[in-house]
Design a protein around this nucleic acid. Structure first.
Lengths: 326, 326
DNA sequence: TGTGAAATTGAAATCGATCTATAAAAAATA
DNA sequence: TATTTTTTATAGATCGATTTCAATTTCACA
């Protein structure tokens, strides 16, 4: 592996000049530039990222902390964040926390020691900023975890409104909301509030069912759906806080011979790939994950490179995608 | 951020001593050790990873290249690789290649410049080693891409055998195999060979249908399944090369009013989370993804740390998980 | 022809660790 | 007590980049 020095020697200049050219700072004549380009090509030169980071006191890494990579919502997040990160010439350090605050702290420590340009986190750990010590911008997505940490969310309240309005407009008389785990993601509670407000305004009875953290992680919502169907046989419209629960509702109903959308209509949340693989395909509230990822990555980069401030809260619009479950 | 030097000064020793203690190499008296520990605690010291990597000429990063993070098979791979990597004190650099060789080359270049301890790749790019230049162990998982690159696969042939035997034992008279994309993953062809050999031995007619790369990436197998059902109405057992196709078969059949498992039985491959969310739940061939990830990560680390050689091919057993589609 | 400003290059310090060679102190042995 | 051996600690080079400061060259203009 050849170094700056090798390139410099071969081009007959000093490392300073080569470095200046690489970072195009200061003056370098066209003639020398060509000699250097030539030398770099001949030696197949790649700058050593560590020397660079050591000198600059910052790296091209961006950290992403998610509860799990298996969950299809987060895997979509990971996929689009990675694409944005790499498009901007940065690299993604992926961390899965399993929702354990201790692991999150450790990851922050690690990311900090790696002088990342920034961290994107999807976590529910409230006020995490008080427990960590990091000198890089942190952005929370999908959740608000601290007043100090900028958050990029979708319009959860509006999502709830759209879902309820849609179900009611389709003729549902009694609604239920299954939350992903209401104490986990405070901002997602707004989905329920939006839903509730519409129900109340229109005089439609409704109930709320809350999943546990364990169910959220294992994506195992079987029992909670059964419980709902057992205890509230008159519910004819269900709004779930994520598509995986919606999928489970469909599977369970199909098992019980309940026809969707005839007997029960279902609206999910997120719009993950699952929605179109299922039969019936799932009506859902789409979160603009790619846009959110793009925004998160670009905010971090412009903060890191040009010290542009990051707005403390950005809300992206949501959209109801009508499919076969309603 | 405090440095080794700060710690050394505070403890009244030199950096050499502190470094020796950190890497426990050479002699350090218990008394000095305590002073150093004390100083480190007081200063909340974290070693600078870059200085370390620069000096050692290697890092704690492990690269993982997958076609996409959205695909549920790869997201399971990502999840378990990340867990293993972090358990061993390493960090995961995630790269998604979209199956584009050019992006893969760039990622290899980048990983190389970051002196990763090793690279785990799930790709179909044959003989990629001839196009890249990396000075770290590379391990291919799920696919064999070059005789020079060690591969960790599941027993694909046996998977095909198990699937065919199972379908036949359940009374199927005419079988079909839908391959993920047969030209993409040479080793997965063995799934078909195992399947075919059993069919031929037992005298069961069978057909093969191949998906395209585009379908593989978009996970959109709708048209291919419809084509199968249209052209071969007498098929009563389908073995798919991955669970997503199997899910699509179920959805499409359900749409057409074809009863599973009564009219058509289905066996998938991989055992991703989808299998149990679906109704009927999907009978599948389980790949030991966690074991494969564990093995891959540990091989890389023991190669990097102790220069232990990596066997050129490891095959993990597969297992048929019987569920409701058969 | 001289002058100052702009353009071009270089020497050497720096980032924060590791590591070799060496010296000093402590313990063991003669 | 003298000598060897074992422990312990240090100084200073090194990894491969960036960057400050200074030196030199070029060039327009009076």
């Amino acid at each position: 592996m050849s170094t700056l020095k090798d390139v410099a020697e071969r081009a007959g200049v000093t490392v300073t000049t080569v470095s200046r050219m690489l970072n195009n700072r200061g003056y370098v004549s066209e003639k020398t530039k060509n000699k250097i380009r030539q030398a770099m090509k001949e030696l197949n030169y790649r700058p050593n990222e560590f020397a660079r980071a050591l000198s600059l006191q910052r790296s091209n890494f961006i950290g992403l902390i998610v509860p799990s990579a298996r969950n299809m919502f987060f895997s979509k997040v990971i996929d689009s964040v990675e694409r944005q990160v790499s498009k901007h010439g940065y690299k993604l350090l992926l961390c899965t926390s399993n929702l354990e605050p201790k692991k999150e702290f450790e990851y922050f420590d690690m990311l900090s020691a790696n002088k990342v340009a920034g961290v994107i986190i999807a976590s529910h750990t409230q006020d995490i900023d008080k427990k960590i010590n990091i000198n890089a911008p942190v952005i929370s997505i999908d959740r608000i975890i601290s007043p100090q940490i900028p958050a990029i969310c979708s319009d959860n309240y509006q999502g709830g409104v759209l879902a309820a309005e849609h179900l009611i407009s389709k003729g549902c008389k009694k609604l239920a909301h299954i939350s992903g785990s209401i104490h986990l993601n405070m901002d997602a509670n707004k989905r329920y509030y939006g839903f509730k407000d519409v129900c109340e305004k229109k005089g439609v009875p409704h109930i709320l069912i809350d999943a546990t953290e364990e169910q959220f992680l294992s994506m195992n919502y079987d029992s909670i759906v059964n419980m709902l169907l057992d205890n509230y046989p008159d519910v004819d419209g269900i709004f779930t806080s994520n598509d995986i629960i919606a999928a489970q509702v469909i599977a369970t109903c199909s098992r019980r011979g309940i026809k969707i959308p005839d007997q029960i209509k279902v609206v999910g949340y997120d719009d993950i790939d699952l929605c179109t693989i299922f039969n019936p395909s799932i009506t859902t509230i789409r979160q603009a994950i790619s846009e959110i990822s793009l925004y998160a990555v670009e905010s971090i980069i412009s903060k890191a490179e040009k010290d542009k401030p990051i707005p403390s809260c950005i809300i992206f619009p949501v959209e109801l995608i009508e499919r076969e479950t309603t």
